[in-house]
Design a binder for these strands. Sequence first.
DNA 1: ATCTCTTAATGAACACAATTCATCATTTCG
DNA 2: CGAAATGATGAATTGTGTTCATTAAGAGAT
Lengths: 233, 233
Amino acid sequence: MKNGPARRQVFRLSRERRVADIMAAARDVFREKGYEDAPMSDIAERANVVEGSIYRYFENKRDLLVKVIEDWYEAMLADYDQQLSGIRGTRNRLRFMIWRHLMTIHEEPALCDLMFQFLRTGRDYSHTTVYELNKQYTRRTLDIIKEGIAAGELRNDVTLRLVRDMIYGCIEHHTWAYLRGEGQFDPDTTADSIVDLVLSGLQIRRTPQGPDLADRLEKAVERLENLAGKPAL
Amino acid sequence: MKNGPARRQVFRLSRERRVADIMAAARDVFREKGYEDAPMSDIAERANVVEGSIYRYFENKRDLLVKVIEDWYEAMLADYDQQLSGIRGTRNRLRFMIWRHLMTIHEEPALCDLMFQFLRTGRDYSHTTVYELNKQYTRRTLDIIKEGIAAGELRNDVTLRLVRDMIYGCIEHHTWAYLRGEGQFDPDTTADSIVDLVLSGLQIRRTPQGPDLADRLEKAVERLENLAGKPAL
DNA sequence: ATCTCTTAATGAACACAATTCATCATTTCG
DNA sequence: CGAAATGATGAATTGTGTTCATTAAGAGAT
């Protein structure tokens, strides 16, 4: 019998259980330390496995990150349709989508950060599941816009892609600014403001034909006055 | 005399020249390979120095990246005010800012990428020079909005921060989508569309009861006229 | 010119983290 | 119960950023 260094007791779990353990540990460590500052050794320790074991279930560190984000994202979107289906009216539905996105970033800033910084920038992003999920997610917003157009409430001469970029770009830009200390975070009023801006724009709405209307009224009254002033009786 | 390995000829240059050489090399390598995939050895080789020498002028790899981006950003913003000062009118000035930003991203996608991905996400971003430059840069857009408000052209009940987030968020979101293959890139029409969307919003402007109201009033007066004209005789 | 003295550049050595793999423990199955 | 299959291990490897003792180049004095 060789007297080597003490070997840790080996536990054998089901594949699903091991994967779940590692992903849970990875999610926690990534949340706390980000991607680059999260050593595999930390993840292994928290998952009660040894570093090398992680590579039996995940190709590499990045793959682990991708799986973690996918898992979270998918779960988050699960009951989305249901919530949305209970809301009526273009404005309300749009507001919900914006509010929901703001809340998500507020609840999981670290994971959102990882997603935007490390997944979305990767060369292969457009071939990932996260890309598809995200597309599916933003498509709902565009569907709301389309319905608004079909109902004659919204302009039909805008590029839908740009509207999407404007809404989501605004939310994200706003959130990063908040995360580095600019202003406060109030999903309710922010959502209201964004919907209002997107729908109404910046320009002051001149009541068109305003002066014209006044003219016409004045002329009508004049006719009345003339009529009344005459020796009609 | 020791017969060690051949030692490379040592060139001594002015500090400015060395720094400039290293930064130029770093800029090129970063542009080609990104941040993480750009080894210091490549940068050193291209700058004709040895790896260790870089650390006489830069604290570490990140510091080098920061300096490179700063340098580029500063140069880019240099003749900005001058260009803008030649443009009149809220809409045109706003359009220029948007167009200019689109062009910048189009001309230097790699450096913009680095800036967004590695600088803006850093913990210390809000204490960097790039942060200040960027603030100063976006402030001009907000100044244009403020002038529009002062001139009575734009609504005064919007959060300026949100308008900024909407404009820049939209541009950036749009650009990343483009960079990963969605749609084309046409700074001119895109700038037009964004300005239009920001100023006018999505909602169809109902002439609010304009003609309708006038019609109804005129008819009422007509009835009065008829009434007054009849039993009078 | 020659001889210090200061300073810059060097590249070998270090440190640290991701990844691999030969080895051994555990389970499964005949 | 024994043998094969499978899974976990952790030591070794690799790659890369960073450090530092050593050495070369230039400046100034004699």
